[in-house]
Design a protein around this nucleic acid. Structure first.
Lengths: 157, 157
DNA sequence: TAAATTGTTCATTTTTTCTTGAACGCGGGG
DNA sequence: CCCCGCGTTCAAGAAAAAATGAACAATTTA
């Protein structure tokens, strides 16, 4: 029922990792435990071993599944879903990009488009000129991100 | 004293951007205002125009300077520091990597080293074997990160 | 079909993070 | 030498994010 030293260590490792990514601790706990566990685990096993509420575990698993970071495996003779960690770094990164980065990037681009239309109304004075240049700079940044970020997944073959 | 529509738009843009990076809103506000401002601004101008406390502005600028995202420019006849936005994407990314990512990555590697020593004590049973493999997997991930992340800065030439 | 088991949702509470503002230190001028 | 302007620090308060747990579907099985 308690966790071994190794399990605690691995879970801790993932907790720090997901915090870097801006995700809640519970996500790291769940993924970490699944990562070290030889067997797939059902939701209530996660709750018990991690001292976590059913609600947290359910929400955490939902997000992890959306990333493709855990998969549900059918276990014959058991009505419950059992979960397993996906451990291919490339897939984890791809899932994170798709679910977290891309949507925000798109949103940012919409915002930028609105800014550009505002920019059209700028004066031809020095200040207006400067600000138009800055908006162009933002456009270039946006373009670069679209080019470079997808490459990242590729580098992890 | 108030902000123009464009200024609000740009600031908003950067506020969302820094949130993606896990940084506080105030950082985005400061950088955003400096980014659209043709002139360099002293601390108290930032406070006034952003309705922000001196404490926040000071701390925000400190972090932004550590990133190399703003530079202090000397203004003759004025005892105050004046600040300007650094707008080269490559440098911004490099600064963020250096100040935020690399330290956490190093910390993670220390943790991993500890885990590996724990792993030495694992049994030769199936479970121990499985967990040893997982630790190897973590080592490979760590190695990949060390290889790939530095490349990112390079791609932004 | 009733009862039991599994998992989800969401309002509330708890925890964490950010901001504030007052106190402090430092360096000039007067 | 003392005062004043500028900036930093940090304890306390405010705001934001996450966890809880109870209510609710859905699905099985008895």
């Amino acid at each position: 029922m308690g966790l071994t030293g190794l399990e605690v260590g691995v879970i801790d490792f993932f907790v720090s990792a997901v915090k870097v990514l801006g995700l809640p601790k519970s996500i790291g706990e769940i993924y970490g435990l699944l990562f070290v566990s030889p067997q797939s685990l059902p939701l209530d096993a996660l709750c018990q071993r991690l001292n976590m509420s059913k609600g947290s575990a359910s929400q955490g698993l939902k997000l992890l599944r959306a990333f493709g970071a855990v998969k549900a495996t059918y276990q014959p003779g058991d009505r419950r879903d059992h979960f397993t960690a996906e451990v291919e770094l490339k897939r984890l990164v791809a899932g994170f990009m798709r679910e977290q980065i891309q949507p925000r990037l798109s949103h940012g681009e919409e915002r930028l488009a609105q800014l550009l239309s505002l920019g059209g109304q700028l004066s031809d004075q020095a200040a207006g000129h400067f600000q138009r240049q800055r908006l162009q700079k933002l456009e270039r940044w946006s373009q670069r991100s679209r080019e470079v970020l997808p490459l990242l997944s590729g580098l992890l073959e």
